[in-house]
Amino acid sequence: MGAVAAQATTEIRALAQILDELDYYNVLEITPDASASEVRAAYHRATRRFHPDGHRQIGDDMRPVLGRIAKRVAEAYSVLRDPRRRQVYDQQIRGDSARVRMPLVQAEAEAERQSRDARLGKTPNGRRYFVLAQADVARGDKVAAERNLRTALTFEPDNGVFKDLLGQLRGKR
């Protein structure tokens, strides 16, 4: 094994040892304020160093180690490249510094929940009456819809979506 390969092996070993303690930013060696293009550049940089294809000469014992790093790099990237997932992740690591990984599906579900909240309301009761109002609209019962929307607004007075629908209903009548 040449000096370069030996150096690479040492580097890979060292990284693998602490991998589970690194958050996604650490994994990609960027700061939490990195821009989207910095995230991408970091991903490319990391894969240049750690993609198994680049280490043909490496010992068989090191292959799984390298594989672990490569997979973590991809995982980090798949969260940080997506603004919605990244936002959720940022909240998570801020709240709980021990949590450095996030199931990707959780990231997606969480991101979806947030955008849904924005759409449908933040409180269970707000959502509840909003859904009922939508059902009323679908059925053509505008009076009931208005009543339900007004109830929904008592839980979330600032909800723009609720207000919009109410405005539309009033406009139609």
Partner: peptide
Amino acid sequence: TIIERNTPVPIEQ
């Protein structure tokens, strides 16, 4: 879903 489509590979969940 465990791993979404268009997720970079190799990946593990």
